[in-house]
């Protein structure tokens, strides 16, 4: 079994700052440990903020049984990147309600962050963001999946979500006829 790099680092950090740490240790469903800035975790995740405030953070690794190591690594990576990125004026101003753009556009680095993810990693990350109450990360990942659907046929949309067609041939034909206006280009 391979040695977990994250775990080694976590142990190092624990030795250095035992009492008043500025990081928290999170444990994935498959037992891997990850360090994340306490400030960023509390700011970006309502669930982690609640756990930190409620003192239910375990210094030996807070169990997040719902989240696999790959997804948790991406969550931690996102938090750390977010902690290092200075919120731009654009992001602040766009948080004021804007009639025609109901959703905040992802920042350039956020776009790149989700673009490099594999299909499975992206879908796991959406669920992890939802579980941890990470509104901003949920925005960014949902935006990415919706972009993958735009202009696509039902067949291609099924591919995006990796789901079976459960309509009968007749039902599909009926939908295509009734809703022909939405099938202009195929």
């Amino acid at each position: 079994m391979e040695v977990d790099k994250g775990k080694g680092e976590a142990e190092e950090t624990r030795k250095v700052a035992e009492a008043d740490r500025d990081t928290v240790t999170l444990k994935s469903s498959d037992g891997k440990l990850f360090e994340v800035s306490k400030e960023a975790a509390a700011r970006l995740s309502t669930v982690l903020a609640g756990m930190i405030a409620g003192g239910s953070i375990d210094d030996n690794g807070t169990d997040l049984k719902q989240i696999g190591s790959e997804a948790l690594e991406n969550v931690v990576d996102y938090c750390n990147k977010h902690a290092n990125s200075i919120p731009s004026a654009a992001l602040i101003s766009s948080s004021i309600s804007f009639n025609t753009a109901p959703f905040k556009e992802p920042e350039e680095w956020e776009r790149k962050f989700v673009d490099r993810l594999s299909h499975d990693a992206l879908f796991d990350l959406v669920e992890a963001a939802n579980f941890l109450g990470m509104e901003r990360l949920l925005d960014v990942t949902c935006h990415k999946i919706s972009e993958m659907m735009k202009g696509k046929s039902p067949d291609q949309i099924r591919e995006v979500f990796n789901i079976k067609n459960d309509y009968t041939k007749e039902e599909l034909e009926e939908i295509r006829q009734e809703l022909a206006w939405a099938f202009y280009d195929d």
Partner: peptide, 10 residues
């Protein structure tokens, strides 16, 4: 249109 094609997916 995109929403309706999602509707037609499953």
């Amino acid at each position: 249109e995109d929403l309706v094609r999602a509707y037609a997916s499953c």
